[in-house]
Simulated assay, not measured.
Amino acid sequence: MDRIKGQVVEILAPNRVLFEIAFVGNYNKRNYADVVEVRFTDLTPPYDKDASGSEIIGILNNSILGVQASLQVQSKDVDGTLVGRLKLEGVAFRRKRKLP
Rank of each mutant, 00 (worst) to 15 (best):
Y32S: 04
L88G: 04
E37G: 10
K87T: 11
N15W: 09
Q68S: 07
V24A: 03
S63T: 13
A13S: 13
Q68R: 06
L43I: 02
E89H: 04
I21C: 01
L82N: 01
K29I: 12
S70Q: 06
L88Y: 00
E37M: 15
G53Q: 13
P45G: 09
Y32F: 12
G80V: 11
V67Q: 02
K76I: 15
P46T: 05
V67A: 03
A51I: 05
R30A: 13
V83F: 05
N62T: 12
I56T: 07
E37D: 11
E37H: 07
V8P: 02
D2G: 07
K29Q: 14
G84I: 03
E89G: 10
P45K: 13
I59P: 03
L60Q: 05
S70C: 06
V17A: 09
N62H: 13
F23E: 11
V24C: 01
V8E: 00
D48C: 04
Q7W: 04
Q7E: 02
N26A: 12
V91A: 12
I64Y: 00
V36P: 02
R94M: 13
E55P: 06
V36W: 08
G25Q: 01
P14E: 10
V8R: 00
G25L: 00
V83H: 01
L65A: 02
P46A: 06
L86C: 09
F23M: 05
A51Q: 12
S52R: 15
R30L: 11
Y32T: 02
Y32C: 06
R95M: 13
G66H: 00
G80Y: 05
V9E: 01
K87C: 08
S52H: 15
N61F: 04
R95Y: 15
K96W: 15
L86H: 01
D50V: 12
